[in-house]
Write a protein that binds this DNA or RNA. Structure first.
Length: 434
RNA sequence: GUGAGCGUAGCUCAGUUGGUUAGAGCGCCUGGUUGUGGUCCAGGAGGCCGGGGGUUCGAGUCCCCUCGCUCACCCCA
């Protein structure tokens, strides 16, 4: 019998949940501030929904199984296929553009490494049914807002922005035929993961001549949008789109976080336009979030085309980044009131007091298993209770309980019928109420 | 999948060229205080030294195997 969770699966103890809940709350509040609606979908999906998009190669990474009726099912490795399924199933009823978000638990059977586990929670936020660049910016602004809400500044993180459309235009200008461009993009995504020599080799394997490959590698020399603009036709829509994006970013107040980065192309085939990834300033960690415009995903799943843009923001890397910065939520007081007794015989009265307090909406804990003043107050202290109400023989003789302020150590004796009022007054203000 | 490192108390770790009864800090429990928590002081509990095999008079320590964990690479988003 092992008490360890399966490899890559995560336990969340109460102290971990403080962190996780804070993160989820921040994500949710940010999405709502930007007018997004929440949705959810099952963790278990039909295997074919997930394999269609992922392709055959990634099937090994999916936790797949057969149910008792022989259905081929799987734990979702990502939530985007489910999003497409939900939208497609009610396509005519959903008001477009749809601004939807979810926090999805996803599973992927893969080798463990820093920032990568087999189970994680991912905040997914998408706008479906709108193709304008303002849509892309709204999605990115939401991502930046979340980073800010988590305590990160433009000095800590940056959103690196690339464009599939722009790189494609540059490739066209270099003479790379359209049908080879996607292959080249996939190779370019490997930059930084393999050496430039290997990269050039991969380009040659993709059918690119050596001298052309060298010029393609020259794309990475581009350090600014103006730089890139000089290498494509003057009327390039990709450049105009990016310029518009950065102008909008100024107005949206997120420009300081954004940076043009020609090398960001992302590894998925269905991205069609703007793509982006957020990194910590020192690039010590994996991408914090990543996304882009994927106008072809619906058609790749056999649906009529529908433009979309969105991102995924996982809980694992951001935790590493924030912990490295020393940013974490403060655990607040556990409960408002801890109710206890000095003698077991007084539990009936204690239960009644606790019930009264709970009916009034206070968070109330019973000091179960703690009898006598010493263990009662020790218990209350560990539970970070702000007040203690205790029922003891001496005071009960006159129909009273005692209310203690844990931070000031002051106590008052109050009639049983006045406990709720006394607690409310005590917690409402004054010394020790913080 | 390849390579490296690490598994000793609840946690973080120390443990000498192999040597007698395996240690520290933190945490936990008890007492100092018979009706009062945090601090302080004193005491205490808690170990198949990951598991198996081998070498040896003797193994936490050396060798082999195995399981688990971590990091890097590879792969992937």
């Amino acid at each position: 019998m092992s008490f360890q969770a399966p490899r890559g699966m995560r336990d969340f103890y109460p102290e971990d949940m403080i962190w996780r809940t804070w993160l989820f709350d921040t994500w949710t509040a940010t999405a709502r501030r930007h007018g997004f609606e929440q949705y959810d979908a099952p963790v278990v999906e039909h295997l074919d929904l997930l394999t269609r998009k992922a392709g055959e190669e990634i099937v090994d990474q999916i936790y797949a199984f057969e149910d008792k009726s022989g259905r081929q099912l799987a734990l979702r490795p990502e939530v985007t296929p489910s999003l497409v399924r939900l939208v497609a199933a009610r396509r005519t009823q959903i008001v477009l553009p749809a601004k939807w978000f979810t926090i999805a638990q996803c599973f992927r059977y893969e080798r463990m490494s820093k920032g990568r586990k087999r189970e994680h929670f991912q905040w997914n936020l998408d706008i479906i049914g709108a193709a304008d660049i303002t849509t892309d910016l709204e999605v990115m602004a939401t991502a930046v807002d979340a980073l800010r809400a988590l305590g990160l500044s433009a000095e800590d993180v940056s959103l690196r922005i690339g464009s599939r459309k722009l790189v494609a235009a540059m490739l066209t200008a270099l003479g790379v035929p359209d049908d080879q461009q996607l292959g080249v993009l996939m190779v370019l995504d490997k930059r930084g993961k393999v050496s430039d020599e290997v990269l050039a080799e991969m380009l040659r394997d993709a059918g690119i001549a050596a001298d052309l490959a060298a010029r393609i590698m020259g794309i990475f020399e581009v350090s600014s949008l103006d730089d890139a603009a000089r290498q494509v036709p003057a009327d390039s829509p990709a450049v105009a789109e990016l310029r518009q994006l950065f102008t909008l970013a100024e107005k949206a107040g997120v420009a300081s976080f954004l940076a043009f980065d020609i090398a960001v192309v992302r590894g998925l085939a269905y991205y069609t336009g703007i793509v982006f990834e957020a990194f910590d300033a020192r690039r010590q960690f994996r991408a914090i979030l990543g996304g882009g415009r994927y106008d072809r995903l619906f058609e790749s799943l056999g649906e009529p085309p529908l433009p979309a843009v969105g991102f995924g923001f996982g809980d694992v890397v951001i935790r590493e980044v924030l912990e490295a910065k020393g940013l974490s939520p403060q655990g607040g007081p556990g409960v408002d009131v801890c109710v206890g007794v000095f003698e077991a015989a007084n539990w009936p009265e204690a239960m009644e007091v606790a019930s009264d307090l709970r009916r009034e909406g206070f968070c109330v804990d019973l000091a179960l298993g703690a009898e006598g003043p010493k263990s009662l107050f020790k218990y209350a202290d560990r539970r970070a209770a702000r007040r203690v109400v205790f029922l003891a023989p001496e005071e009960l003789k006159s129909g009273s309980a005692v209310l203690r302020d844990m931070s000031t150590r002051s106590q008052e004796t109050v009639a049983l019928g006045d406990v709720v009022t006394a607690v409310r007054r005590s917690l409402a203000g004054g010394i020790g109420s913080a």
